[in-house]
Structures are given as structure tokens and as C-alpha cells.
């Protein structure tokens, strides 16, 4: 997959999203939480882009914005070079068949009252694709592609009769049944066991080959991203702090936060001899000025004069590898 030559399928430009959160039940004051802060990145056709961050980092929000489950406060989102940010629901509906999503928790994302066939068929019905017999063929085809075999055996099973791995396969089939161009996979395996996760990843990889689909893979795991992704973006508290080729980011992490994430990987996952960056401060500093680097309070390398006052701009430390840190490179 040569991503450099293939066209861009998705671009986020300076996207910001805030949520109002009531601070406490009694005081009624509202606190504004910034889930995404001027985040920009793009994805090439046919690649798997990994958005990596901890819970609350805004990575899921990014996914939801892309599939139009939420709207950004500012910034623009382009699909195939066409802006889709403010399309009203009705105008976006035809595009839905091109942008799909796989949700985190297969126990929650399937309607308990719908059988496997009904769940996977639904997108076809909604978009008026084909007659019943044709739809049935398509469902068989896609269930086979996610390795629920033989597909007919699963038609009239209900979610509660399936294991977690099987449910997630159904959820993937549902997302893939319309032959979308872009699929947002929001931590698709965080509820599953290691051996099952790998099977799910392998399905995604095979679907990419066979159906020429592009994935935005959202995860907290650098190791998973390493396995799956062509390019990676690391996000910290709503700020994108590093992007680059998967291999480059993992072997030469430029941002202290990415380094901290590498440190936190089980040593057993780095073959015991992985390098430690010690990028994390043991105690926390005072939060920086709003304009400062978001990671400064926890950064072992931060410089008070620089990092606490100014937002670090993106710096290219090697071709295609950008880091938002003054001290990188």
C-alpha cells in the first residue's frame, strides 16, 4: 500500500469540539470540557490510520464527528475533498453508506431484539439496496467475509446467543455490508480477549485487502496500532501530539507523551530489553497557562519558560513524522 500516492479520503482541519458538563449536581455551574482542540489530520485511501490515546483523550469524539453522530464546534471535515462538516442530517444520509463505524462494545452496539440477519440486513434496507433475495445473498457474503461460517447457521441467532467475538464479527459485517469507503473502528477489541482480538484484527486487514476500504482505527494500545496501522496519530487530552508512519512513531517516538506510552507497555511486550524513556514526571506540576503545552504538567523534560507559556507547533522530525514538542528532534 503506497499511501503517499493514493488520494486523500478524509481530512480533519482544526477541528474543535467542546462539551458542557455540569460540575456538580447541586451547584449547577457548567464546566466546559474540550474534547478536541484544533485537531488536524488526514487519511489516505486504503490505509489504516491509528488514533491512539487514553480514555478521555477525545479519540472517540473524533470518530463520532466523522460519522456525524456529533457536530464540531469549529473546524472542517472533508470526505473525498468535499466538505461535510455542516451537512444537515438529511443531506448526509446518502453519504452514510460510504462512512460506517464499528463500535467499542459489541454487547451494547447490537440491538438485543434483532437477529443477526436483521441486524446485518438493516443498512441494506435503509438504503434501499436490492430485493429481499439479493439482500440475503449479500448478507451471506459478508458474514462469510467476517468468518461467521456457515453464515446461514447464524441468521436467526440473537446477540445473547453469541460470544463477544462473534458479536463483534456481526457488528463488523453490519458496518461492511454497504461496501463503505471509510470505516471508523472505535476500540473494536477492548472488550475482547487477546486471542479473539487478533482474529478481529486479521479480519480487518483482510477486508482492507479484499474490499479496498480505509480504516480509522481508534485504540489505547500502541502495540495494536503497531500491528494494524500504516500511520499513527497520538492524541493527548484533545491535542494531537504526534503523527507519522506507524513504524517511525513506535521505534522513534518524538513526543514525551508517546514515550511515556511506550514505557507503559508491558516489558514483556518489548521483549524485556525495550528502551525506557522515563518521560513521565513523578509529581505533577501546576497546569500551564491555557496557551501552554498540555503535557507540560506531567512532562519530565518540559522547560518552564518555554513549555508552560507557549503551545508547541508541529515540527517535522523526519519525513512524514511530525511532533508537537519544542524539544523534539
Amino acid at each position: 500500500m503506497d499511501s503517499k500516492t493514493s488520494p486523500e479520503i478524509l481530512r480533519l482541519s482544526e477541528v474543535t469540539k467542546t462539551f458542557r458538563q455540569s460540575r456538580s449536581f447541586f451547584s449547577g455551574t457548567k464546566k466546559i470540557v474540550t474534547a478536541l482542540n484544533r485537531v488536524s489530520f488526514h487519511i489516505h485511501k486504503g490505509e489504516i490510520f491509528g488514533l491512539i490515546g487514553e480514555s478521555g483523550s477525545g479519540k472517540s469524539t473524533a470518530g463520532r464527528l466523522i460519522v456525524h453522530l456529533d457536530r464540531p464546534d469549529s473546524g472542517k471535515i472533508y470526505l473525498n475533498q468535499k466538505e461535510i462538516t455542516r451537512l444537515p442530517g438529511r443531506a448526509f444520509r446518502p453519504l452514510r453508506s460510504r462512512v460506517q463505524m464499528i463500535f467499542q462494545d459489541p454487547y451494547q452496539s447490537l440491538n438485543p431484539q434483532l437477529s443477526v440477519f436483521e441486524a446485518v440486513e438493516e443498512p441494506l434496507v435503509v438504503h434501499g439496496k436490492g430485493k429481499r433475495a439479493r439482500r440475503e445473498d449479500r448478507v451471506v457474503e459478508i458474514l462469510d467475509a467476517v468468518r461467521l461460517r456457515p453464515p446461514e447457521r447464524f441468521f436467526y441467532r440473537f446477540p445473547h446467543q453469541l460470544s463477544g467475538g462473534q458479536r463483534q464479527r456481526v457488528a463488523i459485517a453490519r458496518a461492511m455490508v454497504l461496501n463503505p469507503e471509510l470505516v471508523v473502528a472505535d476500540e473494536p477489541t477492548s472488550m475482547l480477549d487477546a486471542s479473539i482480538s487478533i482474529q478481529i484484527f486479521d479480519i480487518l486487514l483482510r477486508l482492507r485487502e479484499d474490499l479496498d476500504v480505509t480504516f480509522l482505527f481508534i485504540s489505547h494500545s500502541l502495540a495494536a496500532a503497531h500491528y494494524l496501522c500504516d500511520r499513527i496519530g497520538v492524541i493527548f487530552r484533545g491535542h494531537l501530539v504526534e503523527t507519522g508512519e506507524g513504524k517511525a512513531v513506535i521505534t522513534r517516538p518524538g513526543h514525551p507523551y508517546t514515550q511515556a506510552l511506550m514505557d507503559a507497555l508491558p516489558r514483556f511486550a518489548c521483549g524485556e530489553k525495550g528502551r525506557r524513556y522515563n518521560a513521565l514526571l513523578n509529581t505533577r506540576r501546576k497546569p500551564p497557562a491555557p496557551s501552554g503545552c498540555p503535557f507540560y504538567p506531567r512532562c519530565a523534560k518540559g522547560k518552564a519558560s518555554l513549555c508552560s507559556a507557549h503551545a508547541p507547533p508541529f515540527k517535522e522530525i523526519e519525513a512524514g513524522h511530525q511532533v508537537a514538542c519544542f524539544l523534539a528532534g
Partner: peptide
Amino acid sequence: MLLGAFLTVGGKPPRVPDNGNDS
């Protein structure tokens, strides 16, 4: 299978046979 499925950032890529069966 469990260890083979464990994702690392260094070592060899995991290989897990998938015959579609479950627990």
C-alpha cells in the same frame, strides 16, 4: 495461542489460527 496473540512492538507478528469456533 494466547501468547502468540499478544501484540508486541518488537518481535514477530502474531499468528492465530481462526477456524471460527468459540468457547
